[in-house]
Amino acid sequence: MNMAEHIIDINHLVKRFGDNIILNDLSLSVSKGEVVVLIGPSGCGKSTLLRCLNGLEPIQGGTVMLHGEPVEHGKASLYNIRQKIGMVFQSYDLFPHMTVLKNITLSPLKVQNRSREEVTENAMALLKRVGLEDKANSYPSELSGGQKQRVAIVRSLIMNPDIMLLDEITAALDPEMVHEVLNVVLGLANSGTTMMIVTHEMAFAEAVADRVVFLDGGVIVEEGAPKEFFHDPKTERAQRFLKTFTYSR
């Protein structure tokens, strides 16, 4: 039915830490322009999955392909592949010794060897898009958590990645800053950016996702359109998980 070009293909992925099986024979594909949201209880392997996609973790079985090219931990080819995968982490991971602009332009200049004028112009345009054009020359320590995460998103976007991986990017933020960051992500989704998102914000997940994937115990338990998943989950495990987000006395 969906003949769109696949960006990511995960086939029978197995990830273990020692004897602990984190991801068990997991297969999943992401098409161009699609936004896939991964949810599940903590420890279900969703963050590990993102890290495997970016080659930050060695895998013990199966394959991860980006545009048909294997992503392999520790291989030289990884450097080229990583430029096409943007990743934003939970903790503020800006480089503290560089200004916002330097943070953003470092890798287009050093990795992609683009010209300084073009990169700077591009960076300023992106900063404007996330509402931080006046912070270009600030240091990370002068920014709020929400501002830092928006800069981190821009730092990945400027590489023109084929896919963005967002790993619980609002989990360490104060509640009032969550919104500004998620709005940026919604904007990206609307402009057709391919994304894989791990989040605990259920309302956001429903709004941004094209497809929701529910992971538990290292396997995909249920996946489907957000509306169906959130309002009419098929599996008992998903029902139980979603119940933990509602309160009643």
Binding site: L56, R82, F89, D93, L106, V111, R155, S156
Partner: peptide, 21 residues
Amino acid sequence: KVQLESAESLGLRRGQVMRYI
């Protein structure tokens, strides 16, 4: 570690991570 990982995921090579980060 996050500093190293985010530098790596931006495509920086080992030597560049050392030098710039």
